[in-house]
Design a protein around this nucleic acid. Structure first.
Lengths: 146, 146
DNA sequence: TTGAAAGTTTAGCATAGGCTAAGTTATATG
DNA sequence: CATATAACTTAGCCTATGCTAAACTTTCAA
């Protein structure tokens, strides 16, 4: 009990981090979908299956299946062969994601990485950033002319 | 073709980001396992199933199954009922992960977040950080006394 | 040395998230 | 208005990653 645990977090604390990562992953896909649906609605008035599939780089059938889960989760509504809509909760999640995404992307740019890298990395990082870290990024942006 | 694509990346470029995220995710678990196995070997001389399961917060059987994939992938070696070893490639991946992890965690600390948050967030962020971003984080650390 | 506890493996199940191929509906055009 | 094309859905497959329960080894101590 002495040497080994001197400054290391306990096994329980360690596992909490991995559990959060796994939880983040389940939420991630939903977040990406609603954010993209919101973008499509804003850009072109409606969100269609095909556009989502193209932008995500997956097959159409995959999108259909996922949309069913999102509907069950109460994030979207849809009728057969029609466009997709966000529920109130869906919009909230989309806005949250956009806000987070924007901060992370701007932060990476301010840190000095290229536009392209900021765009790509922020997509992955966005979902693993806690409120505290997001706030720290915001402060950094304020200091460094974001 | 004019208005819509003014400053937005094309659908193909967009989808590339999501494809990278998906690829990162498949590599992520392997990275976490080998890093943890390396830690266990360093800390206590050997890595056992149970310790990995405890630290990851998953069931024992899940670890066994995953270890089989890692063996097939050439990252570890193991014999029934014995401790787990890393191959040369496994060690390389573990070292890579540790290096990355350390930079991201120190970076978050330097950014001003708490020890606890740095530990947790770095676990998720680590796998989505490109070489370019990692270098930018390193530079920031150099400037800010990392 | 033998038997219980601890650790490991197998079997079998579930869900998420991919895919292709084939069928169905909507829409746009000749 | 009829039909070809585009969009959507269904069916059925696969792998990854989780679980529990049960079976099997190892190890340690009486």
């Amino acid at each position: 009990m002495a040497l080994a645990t001197k400054k290391l977090p306990s096994a329980k604390l360690r596992s909490a981090a991995f559990k959060r990562v796994r939880a983040d992953h389940s939420a991630e896909l939903a977040g990406d979908y609603v954010e993209m649906i919101a973008d499509l609605i804003d850009e072109r008035g409606e969100a269609r299956c095909t556009d989502i599939a193209m932008r995500l780089g997956v097959a159409n059938a995959t999108v259909v299946k996922t949309l069913k889960r999102l509907q069950t989760a109460g994030l979207i509504t849809q009728e057969p062969y029609r466009a997709i809509f966000l529920t109130v909760e869906g919009w909230k999640m989309a806005e949250d994601g956009r806000r987070k995404h924007a901060i992370v992307e701007k932060f990476l740019l301010a840190l000095g990485v290229s536009q392209e890298t900021a765009r790509i990395d922020s997509e992955g990082i966005e979902h693993h950033v806690s409120t505290e870290t997001l706030r720290a990024m915001g402060k950094f942006l304020a200091r460094n002319g974001g």
